[in-house]
Design a protein around this nucleic acid. Structure first.
Length: 509
RNA sequence: GCCGCCAUAGCUCAGUUGGUUAGAGCACCAGAUUGUGGAUCUGGGGGUCCCCCGUUCGAGCCGGGGUGGCGGUACCA
């Protein structure tokens, strides 16, 4: 007999979770549509080759991807994101000349990664992406940032409680150049440095300094090797990340907290310190344009904010990169503070479609981590996901096993009236049926035993009101409790639908 | 991947230097109540003590290996 085991990192989702996800996705979709993006679905499975090897860790190619050979011995893989399949799809459509650029597309779907799962981290999870392909202008990047902001607000996160952080890979590359880490020889070291910068949020400047130097020991005593840079270079990198200190909050008199930000001042300072690199200067200019565009459209500097510490992955981004983060102070079950990482991120990837084409095809886009955003919404009590669990169906009880046809007729009548209802399909007696209805969150039960049948009546019991009355009568004896038949009425069978409707109307409050 | 901690009933956990038949609370089921979800009382069902190997007269407890979970770290397309 096999054990009904579930592979780790693969979750099941119940009705409440599914309903919340559905509502959230619908809000996101509305925003994407409003911006003129159109729906697209691509397959879950692609040729391994077309997904590409954008693994920064070249020692472990294909690790993290579920792969298997097709019957023609070509390797197939489950998609690990929605961007690589989009690039392939766009290239194919361009080949057959059936696509007009710029192309705005959005896609929601499951993606798969074969790696160690953790809390909130699964081997199958959902992303919701939007991408503009064929637009080289930073206006496309600015638009993505604004849409990210609008999306977060549409799902119930107020302005000021999130920030869309923007940086540019050209600046990072330029800074590496400026401090003498350019060239092929330093590629490995640059990688280590970028990864260290990416950890600024979590480890703080001291931790980053250790990673840039000799290395860092974590709380378990394990050691992460450092980049072994000389002190002068380390100082310069730290100074770079602190051009706009991340996480700095100001609190107004009402206790409301916001990030301070002045995007153009940040750009000026970056140019001042690293403008010697032509690449950095170009990247800074792009950020300046994005800042002007978003500001002109009404997004303040603390909503879409230049943050030099944003790195975002390591491989295919070529220009502006973005990351949406929630500014939340929440605690877990043990009362410890929880930090939410980014709930969405993206950037410009001008080389990805070009893998399949003779010409370069610029593209930019971003991706929302659906379940991560969902748990963030739960943490802040967003109305989209909060609220009572949905009530269950009306339960018609089986009092007399020979008369199932009668009960089925009552259920059919309720359903024809648009009332969610069900016949009790188990084999237990009346008391378990009551318990069953209770656990189904049924608003009421319908009872017709032989007595009622003889009178042509049915009894309808309002379970919510009944529970309320029972709570107030705790002193009464059990016999009295049962005899009272709280919140239970006898009505002619013909009035069943009306009586149930009345209870549903009460329950809806 | 690496480092650390943990694993006993459906859940949360006790379990003495290794020693009878492994317990509690909650949950579940039944009866008190021949037709009523709560509360109360009474009773009941539930255990591969994560798995395998070893040490021992004897292992839930000690040792080794494995699996799973949690925390950190790495990676995160």
């Amino acid at each position: 007999m096999p054990a009904p085991g579930r592979p780790r990192g693969l979750a099941f989702r119940g009705p409440a979770d599914l309903a919340a996800t559905r509502r959230m996705i619908e809000r996101i979709r509305e925003v994407y549509e409003l911006y003129g993006f159109e729906a697209l679905e691509t397959p879950f499975v692609e040729y391994t080759e077309t997904l590409g090897k954008f693994l920064p860790d070249l020692d472990r190619p294909n690790e993290g991807v579920f792969s298997f050979p097709d019957d023609d011995e070509q390797w197939l893989s489950l998609r690990y994101d929605l961007t690589a399949p989009l690039a392939r799809h766009v290239a194919a459509r361009l080949d057959e000349q059936s696509l007009t650029l710029p192309y705005r597309s959005y896609r929601a779907g499951w993606v798969f990664r074969n790696e160690k799962p953790g809390p909130g981290r699964f081997r199958q999870f959902m992303q919701f992406d939007a991408d503009t392909v064929g637009a080289a202008s930073v206006a496309a990047d600015a638009e993505i940032c604004m849409m990210a902001a609008d999306t977060l607000e549409a799902v119930g996160i107020p302005r000021g409680r999130y920030v869309v952080k923007v940086n540019n890979r050209k600046i990072l590359d330029g800074v590496m150049e400026a401090i003498g880490l350019g060239g092929e020889d330093n590629a490995a070291r640059r990688l280590t440095v970028l990864r260290a910068i990416d950890k600024l949020d979590r480890l703080g400047p001291e931790g980053v300094r250790q990673l840039l130097g000799e290395g860092r020991k974590d709380e378990s005593g394990d050691v992460t090797k450092g980049a072994n840079l000389p002190a002068g270079q380390i100082d310069r990198i730290i100074r770079y990340t602190e051009v706009n200190p991340p996480g700095r909050l100001t609190e107004d008199r009402g206790g409301h907290k916001t990030f301070t930000a002045d995007n153009l001042a940040v750009a000026d300072q970056l140019l001042d310190e690293f403008g010697e690199s032509e690449l950095a200067a170009q990247g800074i200019e792009e950020l300046r344009s994005i800042a002007k565009l978003t500001k002109a459209a009404g997004y303040e500097d603390h909503v879409i904010r230049i943050d030099p510490s944003v790195v975002r992955g390591l491989e295919y981004y070529t220009g502006p990169v973005y990351e949406a983060e929630l500014i939340l102070q929440t605690t877990n079950d043990q009362g410890q503070p929880v930090r939410f990482g980014s709930v969405a991120g993206g950037g410009r990837y001008d080389g990805l479609v070009g893998r399949f084409r003779p010409e370069a095809v610029p593209a930019t886009g971003f991706s929302i981590g659906v379940s991560r955003l969902l748990s963030a919404l739960e943490a802040i009590g967003s109305p989209i996901v909060a609220g009572d669990e949905e009530p269950g169906p009306v339960v018609v009880m089986v009092m007399d096993r020979e008369r199932v046809a009668d009960y089925q007729r009552m259920v059919a009548g309720l359903r024809r009236a648009g009332i969610r209802s069900e016949l009790y399909l188990g084999s237990a007696g009346m008391k378990p049926q009551m318990k069953y209805a209770d656990r189904r969150r049924a608003p009421c039960v319908v009872i017709q035993g032989s007595n009622e049948k003889a009178d042509g009546t049915v009894q309808v019991k309002d379970l919510r009101a009944g529970a309320e009355q029972a709570r107030q009568e705790t002193a009464a004896s059990n016999a009295a409790y049962r005899a009272a038949r709280f919140a239970q009425v006898t009505i002619p069978e013909g009035q069943l639908v009306d009586a149930v409707r009345e209870i549903l109307a009460r329950t809806a409050d």
